[in-house]
């Protein structure tokens, strides 16, 4: 069975787990090609104006997959990947939004993903949402996926160990790793010779340590990781500068930026916020990033 897997949203962080799950259940993953102009335009056409950029991009990927030869489309309803921490409301409503704009063209596979459930319950939910799973095989693949997930959570190598200034680039995985929407931000930074750190380069313990600086624990997994990493950089000087990448129209981002800005205002590590939207031009963004890195380099001289 050929199952469409949009290269958008959480794909960027969890594709090893997803591909493993797909293959071990005998599905052939059909991953959409990277975001491009056409996908973005299709996404814009399918969404309400006020929807955040990443969801518009997601819709573009969904549309382009729908035009391919696939038997089903995988759009999970991601509720929670950690206890008492959630994703934003759009992740909860995503399958409904997709169904609403796609109609019944292609069957959707949209299991509810809530890792605070027991594995047995997750297994049942999978069977319920998709009747083509073989119970026994599904159980085994679930176990191996859990192993990969756990390994995946450990800190990886810095994205470009350039040896220069260390810049933490923090934000949603789908903004950081989607080169089209961020105009090749990571590449630009690598060319400028800096060492790029993303949320994935911080260990769980480091993020926990940073997040302890919050007056109330954040209930968004992603937001907590970003704030934790940012605060850790402050406390331990783990980076020479921090770039926050946000999307226009993102609910959680609007508060997370504020929390981080308030804290950074009292310290000496430079912070830059980039807000991505569909109208942004790449030249402006590249110039700003270059100026930021120049500033970091000059700070030593003066």
């Amino acid at each position: 069975m050929r199952v469409g897997l949009p290269r958008a949203l959480l794909y960027f962080k969890y594709y090893p787990v997803l591909e493993q799950l797909f293959r071990s259940n005998g599905w052939e993953p059909v991953v959409s090609t990277p975001t491009n102009k056409r996908k973005l335009e299709q996404g814009l056409a399918l969404c309400e104006d006020e929807v955040c950029l990443p969801v518009k991009v997601m819709m573009g990927h969904v549309r382009s997959l729908a035009e391919q030869d696939i038997d089903a489309l995988f759009v999970p309803r991601v509720v929670s990947l950690e206890r008492k921490r959630y994703f934003c409301p759009k992740f909860l409503g995503l399958p409904d939004m997709v169904r609403c704009s796609l109609g019944n063209e292609i069957p959707l596979i949209s299991p509810t993903v809530n890792l605070s459930w027991s594995r047995l319950k997750i297994w049942q939910e999978g069977l319920k949402s998709c009747n083509c799973l073989k119970p026994w095989r599904w159980w085994l693949s679930l176990n191996s996926a859990a192993r990969i997930h756990r390994r995946h959570l450990q800190a990886g190598e810095p994205v470009s160990p350039g040896g220069g200034k260390r810049v933490a680039v923090l934000g949603h995985c789908y903004n950081i790793y989607d080169e089209y929407v961020n105009f090749g931000l990571l590449n630009t930074l690598a060319q400028l010779g800096v060492t790029v750190l993303t949320v994935e380069n911080f260990t769980r313990e480091q993020i926990e340590e940073g997040a302890r600086g919050l007056s109330k624990d954040l209930f968004w997994s992603y937001g907590r990781d970003v704030v934790g990493a940012a605060f850790y950089c402050l406390a331990r000087g783990a980076a020479d500068g921090v770039i926050l990448v946000a999307s226009f129209g993102c609910g959680p981002d609007s508060l997370i930026i504020e929390i981080i800005q308030q804290r950074f205002a009292r310290f000496d590590i430079p912070l830059m916020c980039l807000t991505l939207d569909e109208h942004a031009a790449d030249t402006g963004l590249v110039t700003r990033v270059e100026a930021f890195v120049d500033m970091l380099n000059w700070r030593d001289v003066c």
């Binding site: 959630y86 209930f219 504020e258």
Partner: peptide, 22 residues
């Protein structure tokens, strides 16, 4: 008021508090 998510309201108070303190 407070809250436990998934919406922003649950974090209003903390953000407002920081702003007012600053």
């Amino acid at each position: 008021g407070g809250g436990i998510g998934p919406c922003r309201f649950g974090y209003y108070a903390q953000v407002q508090k920081e702003i007012l303190a600053s």
